[in-house]
Design a protein around this nucleic acid. Sequence first.
RNA 1: GGCGGCGUGGCCGAGUGGUUCAGGCAGGGGCCUGCAAAGCCUCGUACGGCGGUUCGAUUCCGCCCGCCGCCUCCA
Length: 461
Amino acid sequence: MLKLHDTATGTIKPLTLRRNDEVSMYVCGPTVYGPPHLGHGRFALSFDVLRRYIEFKGLRVIHVSNITDIDDKIIERAGVENVDCATIASTYEKTWWESMDKLGVLRPTYVPHAVSYVEAMVNLIVKLFDLDVAYELSDGIYLDVSKVSDYGLLAHQDLASLKSGARVEIDENKRSPLDFVLWKLAKPGEPRWPSPFGNGRPGWHTECVVMSLDLLGDGFDIHGGAQDLIFPHHENERAQAVALNRVFASHWVHNGWVTVSGEKMSKSLGNYTNLEELLNSHDSRAYRLLVLRSHYRSPIEVTKETLSEADTAIKRLDRCANRFNLQNNCSPRLNTAMCSNSCDITELKKFEDAMDDDLDTARAVAQIFDLINKANLAKDNSDDSNAELFASSALLFANALGLEAKTESDSIDSFSESLRLQREEARKNKQFDEADRLRVELEELGWTVEDSKDGTKLSKQ
RNA sequence: GGCGGCGUGGCCGAGUGGUUCAGGCAGGGGCCUGCAAAGCCUCGUACGGCGGUUCGAUUCCGCCCGCCGCCUCCA
């Protein structure tokens, strides 16, 4: 039984499902106004791992993750680049998916775009207005949070304490500083859609409540995002659902953020690292390993050093796959039933115990490396059957976490191949000076040279 | 002011009331190897400070110190 931390209750509780064979999960996606940074990569990886693990356990996952393609930030960016908002959105959505593909993040089942949901959002705002929980000001429609009985549930704050701490300049027109905008009337030159309140655009918080309920229906299982979305974004989404008397998410999951020198990484602080840059300068699996190495709710510090370590550790996984010649099929359809034949049952149980415990991926990763060690040891002792069982267990669990070992042999050009053969010949004839010279030459060509009883093997450095 | 999190060995990073260890990276020693590489073995005796509970605390409680986050931009 999978247990997960739930922000609403502040406890780790069993994941209870609406239907017993299917998990409905909504994860707040990016606003596409710039290239993704490491924080985006982390939330995407965190929920990708959750999804993969649930599928590994044999359940179907309906994973919805939106693209916010209309927002103040996009309008601002469009102004800076002197293009229209749609161009900004499509440009950065494209880079978003490129990064996701490199990270090995599975595509969500559905990817709703805010722009195609505007009409539905207007309908929802009209309902809120008719219920008298929303009111009109000169610049738009606002939700009156005092009409929502348990507002502050996710933030674990009551209305009074939230008010007292307001750090942002208070808009005196609003009934309460906490009231939030549902519909923004368009200023000249801004993109606009029709509504009974006048032409304008939806507020951010309305988007996700409409799209999640539309695609997943009332009482869906998991609503997720990074911790900085808890308040106000998720609080406000929930407020609208509560005001409409609709059953919203039953489990709230939030991941921790990426820090730089101990401080939160964010675009507004300007200390962010572009995700693409990272993916271009490291093994694309290194960041996943780094994310998996710590708990999803802990902050992670990403540095050149920790990334290089991860690069090295990934190679250990690859070497294991190569040594045992295991084709690591990375299909997300792999599940416990299917792999119980090819892995050690005790180890599988241990892996599930770790993962069921609020996704303790750090423990799971440790187990994987421990299994690699056991496999190598058994192999060194010629205990081939156990060795293979441990190795395939390790790779299956890695697979379940989305870490794919690379097993394809490197294609060797004919020149390098001739050097390799010459080296084998030289070693056979005990011409070690010549063999050493050939090794240096091969290394300069970018190969790692390994000798064994079976001859000389080359692999890319 | 309100609410929450964190402080572990050279570095990163889990975990736990007590003899048996997280794991990765780096380092020392060894096995293997013509020499390497890979692999294996082995070593380093860590848990912010001060009290308390306890037969025993890094793990529970209290206080203190330090760091970080949220309180209508944010993944």
